[in-house]
Simulated assay, not measured.
Amino acid sequence: MHHTALATAVVGLLAGLASATNGDWQQCGGINWTGDTTCGSGAGCVKINPNPSPIDYSQCQPGAAPAPAPTPTTLKTSAVPAPTSTSTPSTPGSPAGTGPGTELQSGYYWIRAVEAPNFHKYLQSNPLYGTGSAVLGDYTTAGQFQVVDGQLVQLVSAPGAAVKLLYGTVSQERSFNNQALLLSWSETKNTYGTFGWQGDGLTWSVAGITRPNSIAWYVCTGQQVYINLGNYMYQTPTGCVDETIHYYNDKHANN
């Protein structure tokens, strides 16, 4: 009887250890981390990249659980003919969320430009918190973002509500001198290229395309944001300006 009770206790202890998980916003990895790396249901263990330190901390973030692998698609890496018009494409959108408010939520960043004429204009969606155009706008309507597993995500749910995200999606169709790719917001994940951070600068890369400046962007008519595949401040298309955009983690966005 003594041995049976002991065995039962050991089995119970091992079961408890096997099911241990970290709660939302708790540490789940990093340099010298020896604890559990598993997050609760619906959360994912996300590497945090504070500036200027290298990645050395991972945190359980709600809504960041890995999704099933998407069906493989053939990426277009060869140049396609530039459109005959350089006007801003139509990107109809629809409401997707109520928004996280004007106070920065834990685990997310503001993203803003730091050069004229868009100094301290903030990345957001048009319509606000909805699918459609990625634009730079006023600090009072700034979006909140993070890069998770190569995806640029925007938090569009209210604090305390179930986490809802939009994904930055990159068009494979080139425009503006054949050197620009349109960025927009979707409820489905991006399948073309990978987002990341270079210091505090937002980057994008894809196999088969070598970018001279990985943090180079265009802001064109209507404040629409494009990836600049060419050189920064060289042969800038009419109606566009060159920008780099960077994360900012103060409690509130400001101008």
Rank of each mutant, 00 (worst) to 15 (best):
A142N: 04
V114K: 02
A69M: 07
L136K: 07
G16N: 12
A162F: 06
Y122A: 04
T84Y: 01
D250I: 10
A96N: 03
E103S: 15
G63K: 03
G35V: 12
D36A: 09
K47Y: 07
A180L: 05
Y108Q: 05
C220L: 01
G230F: 03
C60A: 09
T191C: 00
P70W: 11
G201N: 09
Q172G: 15
V241T: 14
A79F: 07
G150D: 09
G16Y: 14
M1R: 10
T140N: 11
T91I: 15
W25P: 02
M1S: 13
G40T: 08
T84F: 03
A67F: 08
L181W: 02
F145T: 05
A134D: 06
S157Q: 12
K76Y: 06
A5C: 10
S78T: 09
Y218H: 05
Y109N: 11
T210F: 09
F176G: 00
P50E: 09
M233S: 13
N22C: 13
T140I: 12
S125P: 00
D250L: 14
K47P: 08
K76L: 13
E243K: 05
T102G: 07
Q179H: 03
T88G: 02
I48C: 07
M1E: 13
S87C: 11
E103Y: 08
A116D: 14
G42R: 01
Y232H: 05
L202P: 03
Q223Y: 12
T169W: 06
G130Q: 08
A65D: 04
G208V: 08
P117F: 10
V163D: 01
E187S: 14
A15F: 10
P159A: 08
G23D: 08
G201Q: 15
N213H: 14
D200F: 12
T37A: 08
G101D: 03
I111V: 15
Q179T: 08
G160W: 06
Q61P: 00
S85D: 05
A134T: 13
Q146T: 13
S157F: 12
N177L: 13
T191M: 12
I245S: 03
A207E: 15
Q105E: 11
G101T: 04
I111E: 00
V156C: 05
T8W: 10
E115Q: 13
V225R: 03
E173F: 06
N118H: 14
H252S: 10
K121D: 07
M233D: 14
G160P: 08
I55G: 04
A142E: 07
G168Y: 04
A7V: 11
F176R: 12
N49C: 07
G97Q: 00
A7S: 11
L166R: 00
L166T: 10
N254L: 11
V114E: 08
T34Y: 07
Y139L: 07
T194L: 05
D149A: 15
V148E: 00
G16E: 06
V80F: 01
Y248G: 01
A79W: 07
T34E: 12
Y218V: 07
P72G: 01
S106V: 15
H246V: 08
L229P: 03
G29A: 09
E187R: 13
A162W: 07
Q105D: 04
T37I: 09
S85G: 02
G137Y: 12
W217M: 10
W33A: 00
L136Y: 06
T236W: 02
F119L: 15
I209N: 02
G101C: 02
A142P: 06
K251H: 03
V114R: 01
N51W: 14
Y226R: 02
G137A: 14
I245H: 02
S133D: 06
K164V: 13
Y234L: 14
Y122G: 04
